[in-house]
Design a protein around this nucleic acid. Structure first.
Length: 470
DNA sequence: CTATGGCACGGATT
DNA sequence: AATCCGTGCCATAG
Protein backbone atom coordinates (compact mmCIF):
# COMPACT_ATOMS: atom_id res chain seq x y z
CA UNK A 1 0.00 0.00 0.00
CA UNK A 2 2.92 2.23 0.64
CA UNK A 3 4.18 1.54 -2.79
CA UNK A 4 0.90 2.50 -4.35
CA UNK A 5 0.77 5.84 -2.67
CA UNK A 6 4.30 6.70 -3.62
CA UNK A 7 4.02 5.78 -7.26
CA UNK A 8 0.63 5.60 -8.82
CA UNK A 9 2.24 5.51 -12.23
CA UNK A 10 4.03 2.32 -11.40
CA UNK A 11 1.09 0.52 -9.90
CA UNK A 12 0.77 -1.95 -12.71
CA UNK A 13 4.37 -3.02 -12.64
CA UNK A 14 5.53 -6.46 -11.62
CA UNK A 15 8.04 -7.29 -8.94
CA UNK A 16 10.84 -7.49 -11.44
CA UNK A 17 10.06 -3.99 -12.52
CA UNK A 18 10.07 -2.66 -9.03
CA UNK A 19 13.39 -4.31 -8.42
CA UNK A 20 14.73 -2.23 -11.24
CA UNK A 21 13.42 0.99 -9.75
CA UNK A 22 15.26 0.16 -6.60
CA UNK A 23 18.47 -0.72 -8.29
CA UNK A 24 18.55 2.69 -9.96
CA UNK A 25 17.86 4.43 -6.70
CA UNK A 26 20.93 3.18 -4.97
CA UNK A 27 23.29 4.27 -7.71
CA UNK A 28 25.22 7.48 -7.32
CA UNK A 29 25.60 9.76 -10.28
CA UNK A 30 28.68 8.09 -11.65
CA UNK A 31 27.26 4.63 -11.40
CA UNK A 32 24.07 5.87 -12.95
CA UNK A 33 26.02 7.34 -15.82
CA UNK A 34 27.64 4.00 -16.48
CA UNK A 35 24.34 2.21 -16.23
CA UNK A 36 22.73 4.55 -18.72
CA UNK A 37 25.58 4.20 -21.11
CA UNK A 38 25.21 0.46 -20.95
CA UNK A 39 21.46 0.62 -21.50
CA UNK A 40 21.85 2.95 -24.44
CA UNK A 41 24.41 0.68 -25.99
CA UNK A 42 22.37 -2.48 -25.96
CA UNK A 43 18.81 -1.29 -26.23
CA UNK A 44 17.93 0.19 -29.61
CA UNK A 45 14.57 1.39 -28.31
CA UNK A 46 16.23 3.94 -26.07
CA UNK A 47 17.26 7.30 -27.36
CA UNK A 48 19.07 10.25 -25.86
CA UNK A 49 17.92 13.66 -27.03
CA UNK A 50 20.54 16.28 -26.61
CA UNK A 51 19.21 19.17 -24.64
CA UNK A 52 18.57 20.28 -21.13
CA UNK A 53 15.51 19.03 -19.45
CA UNK A 54 14.46 18.53 -15.92
CA UNK A 55 15.34 14.97 -14.99
CA UNK A 56 12.07 14.52 -13.12
CA UNK A 57 9.43 16.26 -15.19
CA UNK A 58 11.30 16.45 -18.50
CA UNK A 59 10.37 20.04 -19.21
CA UNK A 60 13.04 22.31 -20.61
CA UNK A 61 15.19 23.97 -17.99
CA UNK A 62 15.28 27.71 -17.69
CA UNK A 63 18.75 29.15 -18.04
CA UNK A 64 19.85 25.56 -18.49
CA UNK A 65 19.60 24.85 -14.80
CA UNK A 66 16.31 25.64 -13.17
CA UNK A 67 13.15 23.77 -13.79
CA UNK A 68 10.29 26.27 -13.81
CA UNK A 69 7.92 23.47 -13.02
CA UNK A 70 9.71 22.04 -10.02
CA UNK A 71 11.25 25.18 -8.56
CA UNK A 72 10.01 28.69 -8.41
CA UNK A 73 12.89 30.99 -7.69
CA UNK A 74 10.66 33.68 -6.28
CA UNK A 75 9.05 31.40 -3.78
CA UNK A 76 12.31 30.23 -2.33
CA UNK A 77 12.75 30.62 1.42
CA UNK A 78 14.26 28.85 4.35
CA UNK A 79 11.44 26.36 3.99
CA UNK A 80 11.70 26.13 0.25
CA UNK A 81 15.14 25.50 -1.17
CA UNK A 82 15.92 26.13 -4.82
CA UNK A 83 16.67 23.06 -6.83
CA UNK A 84 18.75 23.08 -9.91
CA UNK A 85 20.57 20.60 -12.03
CA UNK A 86 24.07 20.38 -13.34
CA UNK A 87 25.05 18.16 -16.16
CA UNK A 88 28.20 16.22 -15.82
CA UNK A 89 30.15 18.48 -18.11
CA UNK A 90 29.31 21.69 -16.30
CA UNK A 91 29.66 20.03 -12.99
CA UNK A 92 33.24 19.07 -13.48
CA UNK A 93 34.50 21.86 -15.66
CA UNK A 94 33.28 24.72 -13.66
CA UNK A 95 35.54 27.75 -13.46
CA UNK A 96 38.16 27.77 -10.76
CA UNK A 97 37.17 29.69 -7.69
CA UNK A 98 33.67 28.41 -7.85
CA UNK A 99 32.68 26.40 -4.81
CA UNK A 100 34.49 23.33 -5.80
CA UNK A 101 37.14 21.07 -4.54
CA UNK A 102 39.90 20.50 -7.02
CA UNK A 103 42.18 18.45 -4.86
CA UNK A 104 42.12 15.55 -7.22
CA UNK A 105 43.84 15.52 -10.56
CA UNK A 106 41.72 16.43 -13.52
CA UNK A 107 41.56 12.99 -14.99
CA UNK A 108 38.45 11.53 -16.40
CA UNK A 109 35.16 11.50 -14.62
CA UNK A 110 35.38 8.04 -13.14
CA UNK A 111 38.74 8.66 -11.55
CA UNK A 112 37.10 11.14 -9.24
CA UNK A 113 35.65 8.45 -7.13
CA UNK A 114 38.06 5.93 -5.91
CA UNK A 115 38.95 4.16 -2.78
CA UNK A 116 42.05 5.09 -0.88
CA UNK A 117 43.62 1.93 -2.26
CA UNK A 118 43.03 2.91 -5.88
CA UNK A 119 44.11 6.43 -5.20
CA UNK A 120 47.45 5.32 -3.85
CA UNK A 121 47.92 2.60 -6.41
CA UNK A 122 47.51 5.06 -9.21
CA UNK A 123 50.28 7.21 -7.81
CA UNK A 124 52.79 4.47 -7.35
CA UNK A 125 51.93 2.50 -10.48
CA UNK A 126 54.74 3.93 -12.60
CA UNK A 127 57.39 2.88 -10.11
CA UNK A 128 55.82 -0.36 -9.08
CA UNK A 129 57.21 -3.50 -10.71
CA UNK A 130 54.31 -5.32 -12.31
CA UNK A 131 55.12 -8.45 -10.34
CA UNK A 132 54.65 -6.58 -7.09
CA UNK A 133 51.25 -5.30 -8.00
CA UNK A 134 49.38 -7.99 -6.12
CA UNK A 135 51.51 -7.36 -3.06
CA UNK A 136 50.66 -3.69 -3.21
CA UNK A 137 46.98 -4.52 -3.54
CA UNK A 138 47.18 -6.85 -0.58
CA UNK A 139 48.71 -4.13 1.53
CA UNK A 140 46.35 -1.44 0.39
CA UNK A 141 43.28 -3.50 1.01
CA UNK A 142 44.46 -4.30 4.51
CA UNK A 143 44.55 -0.73 5.76
CA UNK A 144 42.42 0.36 8.66
CA UNK A 145 40.39 3.53 8.59
CA UNK A 146 43.38 5.54 9.72
CA UNK A 147 45.45 4.38 6.79
CA UNK A 148 47.67 2.12 8.84
CA UNK A 149 48.51 -1.45 7.93
CA UNK A 150 46.36 -3.67 10.09
CA UNK A 151 47.96 -7.04 9.42
CA UNK A 152 51.49 -8.24 10.13
CA UNK A 153 53.98 -8.11 7.29
CA UNK A 154 54.75 -11.76 7.76
CA UNK A 155 51.22 -12.62 6.79
CA UNK A 156 51.71 -10.96 3.41
CA UNK A 157 55.03 -12.71 2.90
CA UNK A 158 53.50 -16.03 3.73
CA UNK A 159 50.57 -15.48 1.44
CA UNK A 160 52.58 -14.51 -1.62
CA UNK A 161 55.66 -16.60 -0.84
CA UNK A 162 58.02 -13.67 -1.04
CA UNK A 163 60.77 -12.50 1.28
CA UNK A 164 60.01 -9.74 3.77
CA UNK A 165 62.47 -7.41 2.11
CA UNK A 166 60.36 -7.35 -1.02
CA UNK A 167 57.18 -6.53 0.85
CA UNK A 168 59.02 -3.82 2.70
CA UNK A 169 60.15 -2.32 -0.58
CA UNK A 170 56.55 -2.04 -1.69
CA UNK A 171 55.54 -0.53 1.63
CA UNK A 172 58.36 1.93 1.29
CA UNK A 173 56.89 3.04 -2.02
CA UNK A 174 53.37 3.27 -0.66
CA UNK A 175 54.38 5.26 2.38
CA UNK A 176 55.69 8.01 0.18
CA UNK A 177 52.52 8.33 -1.83
CA UNK A 178 50.01 11.01 -1.17
CA UNK A 179 48.49 10.52 2.21
CA UNK A 180 52.05 10.59 3.42
CA UNK A 181 52.87 7.64 5.65
CA UNK A 182 49.92 5.57 4.50
CA UNK A 183 50.51 1.84 4.74
CA UNK A 184 52.82 2.09 7.72
CA UNK A 185 52.41 -0.68 10.25
CA UNK A 186 52.41 1.82 13.11
CA UNK A 187 51.72 5.47 13.73
CA UNK A 188 55.30 5.80 14.74
CA UNK A 189 56.59 4.72 11.39
CA UNK A 190 54.10 6.92 9.61
CA UNK A 191 55.43 9.90 11.53
CA UNK A 192 58.98 9.02 10.64
CA UNK A 193 58.17 8.86 6.95
CA UNK A 194 56.40 12.18 7.08
CA UNK A 195 59.32 13.67 8.93
CA UNK A 196 61.76 12.35 6.38
CA UNK A 197 59.87 13.82 3.45
CA UNK A 198 59.15 17.04 5.24
CA UNK A 199 62.77 17.67 6.17
CA UNK A 200 63.60 18.12 2.52
CA UNK A 201 61.77 21.42 2.70
CA UNK A 202 61.92 22.47 6.33
CA UNK A 203 64.45 21.56 8.90
CA UNK A 204 62.70 20.04 11.91
CA UNK A 205 63.97 20.74 15.42
CA UNK A 206 66.95 18.58 16.39
CA UNK A 207 66.23 15.15 17.84
CA UNK A 208 62.75 15.02 16.38
CA UNK A 209 63.19 11.61 14.87
CA UNK A 210 64.75 10.32 18.07
CA UNK A 211 61.75 11.64 19.93
CA UNK A 212 59.38 9.77 17.65
CA UNK A 213 61.40 6.62 18.05
CA UNK A 214 61.29 7.03 21.80
CA UNK A 215 57.59 6.36 21.68
CA UNK A 216 54.27 7.97 20.96
CA UNK A 217 53.41 8.05 24.64
CA UNK A 218 56.13 10.57 25.29
CA UNK A 219 54.91 12.95 22.63
CA UNK A 220 52.28 14.72 24.66
CA UNK A 221 52.76 18.07 26.33
CA UNK A 222 52.28 16.18 29.54
CA UNK A 223 55.54 14.38 29.24
CA UNK A 224 58.02 17.09 28.30
CA UNK A 225 60.18 16.26 31.23
CA UNK A 226 60.18 12.53 30.60
CA UNK A 227 60.98 13.13 26.96
CA UNK A 228 63.76 15.54 27.81
CA UNK A 229 65.21 13.07 30.28
CA UNK A 230 65.09 10.18 27.82
CA UNK A 231 66.82 12.12 25.08
CA UNK A 232 69.08 14.08 27.39
CA UNK A 233 67.90 17.42 26.03
CA UNK A 234 66.38 20.49 27.64
CA UNK A 235 62.68 20.62 28.24
CA UNK A 236 62.41 23.66 25.97
CA UNK A 237 63.75 21.57 23.14
CA UNK A 238 61.34 18.83 24.02
CA UNK A 239 58.51 21.32 23.93
CA UNK A 240 59.54 22.53 20.50
CA UNK A 241 59.64 19.01 19.18
CA UNK A 242 56.19 18.15 20.44
CA UNK A 243 54.86 21.38 19.04
CA UNK A 244 56.43 20.69 15.67
CA UNK A 245 55.01 17.21 15.48
CA UNK A 246 51.59 18.38 16.48
CA UNK A 247 51.59 21.08 13.84
CA UNK A 248 53.13 19.27 10.93
CA UNK A 249 52.74 15.53 11.24
CA UNK A 250 49.77 13.24 11.39
CA UNK A 251 49.89 9.81 13.01
CA UNK A 252 46.78 8.76 11.07
CA UNK A 253 47.65 9.25 7.41
CA UNK A 254 44.18 8.60 6.02
CA UNK A 255 42.65 11.33 8.10
CA UNK A 256 44.89 13.99 6.65
CA UNK A 257 42.63 14.49 3.68
CA UNK A 258 39.60 15.29 5.61
CA UNK A 259 39.93 18.91 6.33
CA UNK A 260 42.37 19.58 9.12
CA UNK A 261 41.89 23.22 8.23
CA UNK A 262 38.18 23.02 8.79
CA UNK A 263 36.78 23.89 12.18
CA UNK A 264 35.40 20.43 12.60
CA UNK A 265 37.43 17.52 11.61
CA UNK A 266 35.55 15.00 9.58
CA UNK A 267 35.46 11.52 10.98
CA UNK A 268 34.97 8.01 9.69
CA UNK A 269 34.93 8.39 5.95
CA UNK A 270 34.98 4.81 4.78
CA UNK A 271 38.28 5.53 3.13
CA UNK A 272 36.67 6.74 -0.05
CA UNK A 273 37.53 9.85 -1.96
CA UNK A 274 34.32 11.21 -3.30
CA UNK A 275 33.18 14.00 -5.42
CA UNK A 276 29.72 15.12 -4.48
CA UNK A 277 26.52 13.91 -6.10
CA UNK A 278 24.75 16.90 -4.67
CA UNK A 279 26.04 20.36 -3.81
CA UNK A 280 24.24 22.53 -1.32
CA UNK A 281 25.12 26.19 -1.23
CA UNK A 282 23.60 29.36 0.08
CA UNK A 283 21.84 31.87 -2.07
CA UNK A 284 23.27 34.91 -0.26
CA UNK A 285 25.02 35.78 2.98
CA UNK A 286 21.91 36.58 4.95
CA UNK A 287 21.24 34.23 7.87
CA UNK A 288 17.85 33.39 6.39
CA UNK A 289 19.17 32.70 2.94
CA UNK A 290 17.38 30.04 0.98
CA UNK A 291 19.51 27.02 0.26
CA UNK A 292 20.34 26.04 -3.27
CA UNK A 293 20.52 22.39 -4.06
CA UNK A 294 22.47 21.39 -7.10
CA UNK A 295 21.91 17.86 -8.28
CA UNK A 296 24.46 16.27 -10.55
CA UNK A 297 23.03 14.58 -13.62
CA UNK A 298 25.35 12.24 -15.44
CA UNK A 299 23.71 12.42 -18.85
CA UNK A 300 23.40 15.52 -20.95
CA UNK A 301 19.97 15.26 -22.44
CA UNK A 302 16.69 13.54 -22.06
CA UNK A 303 16.37 9.82 -22.16
CA UNK A 304 13.25 8.58 -23.89
CA UNK A 305 11.82 5.79 -25.94
CA UNK A 306 12.58 6.28 -29.56
CA UNK A 307 9.26 6.86 -31.34
CA UNK A 308 10.71 5.59 -34.60
CA UNK A 309 11.50 2.32 -32.96
CA UNK A 310 7.93 2.04 -31.81
CA UNK A 311 6.73 2.50 -35.38
CA UNK A 312 9.28 0.14 -36.78
CA UNK A 313 7.93 -2.53 -34.52
CA UNK A 314 4.79 -2.77 -36.67
CA UNK A 315 6.78 -3.96 -39.64
CA UNK A 316 9.27 -6.01 -37.72
CA UNK A 317 10.27 -9.34 -39.21
CA UNK A 318 8.39 -12.11 -37.45
CA UNK A 319 11.40 -13.64 -35.77
CA UNK A 320 12.40 -10.30 -34.27
CA UNK A 321 9.02 -9.17 -33.03
CA UNK A 322 9.32 -10.76 -29.67
CA UNK A 323 12.80 -9.43 -29.03
CA UNK A 324 11.93 -5.93 -30.09
CA UNK A 325 8.79 -5.98 -28.07
CA UNK A 326 10.86 -6.85 -25.03
CA UNK A 327 13.33 -4.09 -25.78
CA UNK A 328 10.54 -1.61 -26.08
CA UNK A 329 8.99 -2.58 -22.78
CA UNK A 330 12.33 -2.52 -21.09
CA UNK A 331 13.09 0.92 -22.45
CA UNK A 332 9.72 2.23 -21.39
CA UNK A 333 10.27 0.94 -17.96
CA UNK A 334 13.79 2.21 -17.70
CA UNK A 335 12.72 5.72 -18.51
CA UNK A 336 9.96 5.59 -15.93
CA UNK A 337 12.25 4.18 -13.29
CA UNK A 338 14.82 6.80 -13.99
CA UNK A 339 12.25 9.51 -13.60
CA UNK A 340 11.03 7.92 -10.42
CA UNK A 341 14.54 7.78 -9.06
CA UNK A 342 15.24 11.39 -9.78
CA UNK A 343 11.96 12.40 -8.30
CA UNK A 344 12.59 10.49 -5.09
CA UNK A 345 16.07 11.85 -4.67
CA UNK A 346 15.01 15.37 -5.30
CA UNK A 347 12.16 15.18 -2.79
CA UNK A 348 14.45 13.53 -0.29
CA UNK A 349 17.18 16.11 -0.45
CA UNK A 350 14.75 19.03 -0.39
CA UNK A 351 13.18 17.76 2.78
CA UNK A 352 16.55 16.96 4.29
CA UNK A 353 17.85 20.41 3.54
CA UNK A 354 14.95 21.91 5.44
CA UNK A 355 15.13 19.60 8.43
CA UNK A 356 18.89 19.74 8.72
CA UNK A 357 19.28 23.32 7.62
CA UNK A 358 21.29 24.29 10.67
CA UNK A 359 23.55 21.32 10.29
CA UNK A 360 24.21 22.20 6.68
CA UNK A 361 24.98 25.79 7.50
CA UNK A 362 26.60 25.66 10.89
CA UNK A 363 28.13 22.25 11.27
CA UNK A 364 28.05 19.02 13.16
CA UNK A 365 26.76 20.23 16.51
CA UNK A 366 23.53 21.33 14.88
CA UNK A 367 22.69 17.95 13.41
CA UNK A 368 19.24 16.85 14.50
CA UNK A 369 19.04 13.17 15.27
CA UNK A 370 16.91 11.77 12.49
CA UNK A 371 16.24 8.23 11.45
CA UNK A 372 15.58 7.01 7.96
CA UNK A 373 12.29 5.62 9.19
CA UNK A 374 11.07 9.03 10.33
CA UNK A 375 11.86 10.61 7.03
CA UNK A 376 10.27 7.72 5.19
CA UNK A 377 7.03 8.34 7.00
CA UNK A 378 7.07 12.03 6.17
CA UNK A 379 7.71 11.46 2.51
CA UNK A 380 5.33 8.52 2.43
CA UNK A 381 7.79 6.10 0.97
CA UNK A 382 9.10 2.82 2.28
CA UNK A 383 12.04 2.86 4.68
CA UNK A 384 14.14 0.83 2.33
CA UNK A 385 13.58 3.44 -0.34
CA UNK A 386 15.27 6.01 1.84
CA UNK A 387 18.00 3.58 2.75
CA UNK A 388 18.84 2.93 -0.84
CA UNK A 389 18.61 6.54 -1.88
CA UNK A 390 20.94 7.56 0.90
CA UNK A 391 23.58 4.92 0.44
CA UNK A 392 26.68 5.64 -1.59
CA UNK A 393 25.92 9.27 -2.28
CA UNK A 394 27.78 12.33 -1.14
CA UNK A 395 26.89 15.94 -0.53
CA UNK A 396 28.95 19.06 -0.49
CA UNK A 397 27.81 21.60 2.09
CA UNK A 398 28.46 25.35 1.97
CA UNK A 399 31.60 24.99 4.07
CA UNK A 400 32.94 22.98 1.12
CA UNK A 401 33.12 19.84 3.13
CA UNK A 402 32.12 16.75 1.23
CA UNK A 403 30.22 14.34 3.40
CA UNK A 404 28.31 11.12 2.85
CA UNK A 405 24.59 11.62 2.67
CA UNK A 406 24.24 9.06 5.42
CA UNK A 407 25.80 11.54 7.80
CA UNK A 408 22.47 13.35 7.81
CA UNK A 409 21.19 10.36 9.76
CA UNK A 410 24.08 9.97 12.17
CA UNK A 411 22.57 9.34 15.56
CA UNK A 412 25.42 10.67 17.60
CA UNK A 413 27.26 13.21 15.49
CA UNK A 414 25.92 16.16 17.44
CA UNK A 415 26.98 14.68 20.76
CA UNK A 416 30.40 13.89 19.43
CA UNK A 417 30.74 17.41 18.11
CA UNK A 418 29.69 18.85 21.46
CA UNK A 419 32.21 16.58 23.10
CA UNK A 420 34.93 17.84 20.82
CA UNK A 421 34.21 21.49 21.58
CA UNK A 422 34.28 20.80 25.28
CA UNK A 423 37.62 19.10 25.02
CA UNK A 424 39.01 21.79 22.76
CA UNK A 425 38.11 24.44 25.31
CA UNK A 426 39.05 22.56 28.45
CA UNK A 427 41.60 24.19 30.70
CA UNK A 428 43.13 20.97 31.86
CA UNK A 429 42.36 17.43 30.69
CA UNK A 430 38.95 16.24 31.82
CA UNK A 431 38.33 12.61 32.59
CA UNK A 432 35.53 10.72 30.91
CA UNK A 433 33.42 10.84 34.06
CA UNK A 434 33.73 14.60 34.25
CA UNK A 435 32.83 14.85 30.60
CA UNK A 436 29.67 12.87 31.22
CA UNK A 437 28.58 15.42 33.79
CA UNK A 438 29.24 18.41 31.56
CA UNK A 439 27.48 16.79 28.65
CA UNK A 440 24.41 15.98 30.68
CA UNK A 441 24.19 19.64 31.67
CA UNK A 442 24.03 20.47 27.99
CA UNK A 443 21.24 17.97 27.57
CA UNK A 444 23.16 15.00 26.25
CA UNK A 445 22.51 12.00 28.47
CA UNK A 446 25.05 9.33 27.71
CA UNK A 447 27.01 6.77 29.68
CA UNK A 448 30.61 7.10 30.68
CA UNK A 449 31.56 4.20 28.47
CA UNK A 450 30.00 5.94 25.53
CA UNK A 451 32.07 9.05 26.03
CA UNK A 452 35.13 6.86 25.80
CA UNK A 453 33.85 5.37 22.55
CA UNK A 454 33.17 8.77 21.01
CA UNK A 455 36.58 9.97 22.04
CA UNK A 456 38.32 7.17 20.25
CA UNK A 457 36.07 7.63 17.23
CA UNK A 458 37.28 11.20 17.03
CA UNK A 459 40.87 10.21 17.61
CA UNK A 460 41.06 12.10 20.89
CA UNK A 461 43.52 10.73 23.39
CA UNK A 462 42.49 9.81 26.94
CA UNK A 463 42.77 12.50 29.58
CA UNK A 464 46.13 11.52 30.99
CA UNK A 465 47.79 11.61 27.58
CA UNK A 466 46.17 14.85 26.67
CA UNK A 467 47.82 18.10 27.57
CA UNK A 468 46.70 21.52 26.66
CA UNK A 469 48.97 24.24 25.61
CA UNK A 470 47.74 27.03 23.34
C1' DC B 1 41.31 3.63 44.05
C1' DT B 2 40.52 5.97 39.46
C1' DA B 3 40.57 6.06 34.54
C1' DT B 4 40.20 3.55 30.42
C1' DG B 5 39.94 -0.08 26.99
C1' DG B 6 38.02 -4.86 25.56
C1' DC B 7 34.29 -7.94 25.09
C1' DA B 8 29.80 -8.97 24.71
C1' DC B 9 24.79 -8.40 25.12
C1' DG B 10 20.26 -6.46 23.81
C1' DG B 11 17.66 -3.26 21.60
C1' DA B 12 17.14 -0.20 17.80
C1' DT B 13 17.88 0.55 12.93
C1' DT B 14 18.29 -0.67 8.26
C1' DA C 1 17.39 -11.13 9.01
C1' DA C 2 21.59 -8.61 9.42
C1' DT C 3 23.92 -4.84 11.26
C1' DC C 4 24.93 -1.00 14.17
C1' DC C 5 25.20 1.28 18.51
C1' DG C 6 24.99 2.32 23.42
C1' DT C 7 26.04 0.34 27.60
C1' DG C 8 27.40 -2.67 31.53
C1' DC C 9 30.87 -5.55 33.45
C1' DC C 10 35.51 -6.76 34.10
C1' DA C 11 40.54 -6.59 33.57
C1' DT C 12 44.46 -3.78 33.47
C1' DA C 13 47.47 0.23 34.08
C1' DG C 14 48.82 4.12 36.59
Amino acid sequence: MLLQSQAPALRHLTTAHLAQTMSLLELNSIELGQKIEAELANNPALELIEGRHCPTCHRPLRENRFCPNCTNLHESSTEQPVIFYSYQKDFYNRPAGDDFDNDLPDDNFAARVETLAEYVLRQIAPELPVNDRHIAMHILTSLDEDGLLSIPITEICYYHHVPASRVEQVIHLIQRADPLGVGSPTSQEALLVQLEVLSEYHAPPPFTSEAIRAGIELLSPHHYTDLARTLKITSTQAREIVQFIGDNLNPFPARAHWGEHETTRSNHNEGVYHHPDIVISRMNDEPDTPLMIEIGVPYAGTLRVNPLFREALQQAPAEKTELWQADLEHANLFVKCLQQRNNTISRLIQRLAVIQRNFVLYGDVQLKPLTRAELAEELEVHESTISRAVSSKTVQVPSRRIIPLSMFFDRSLNVRAALKTIIENERKPLSDTQLVRILSKEGYDIARRTVAKYRSMEGILPAHLRGHVR
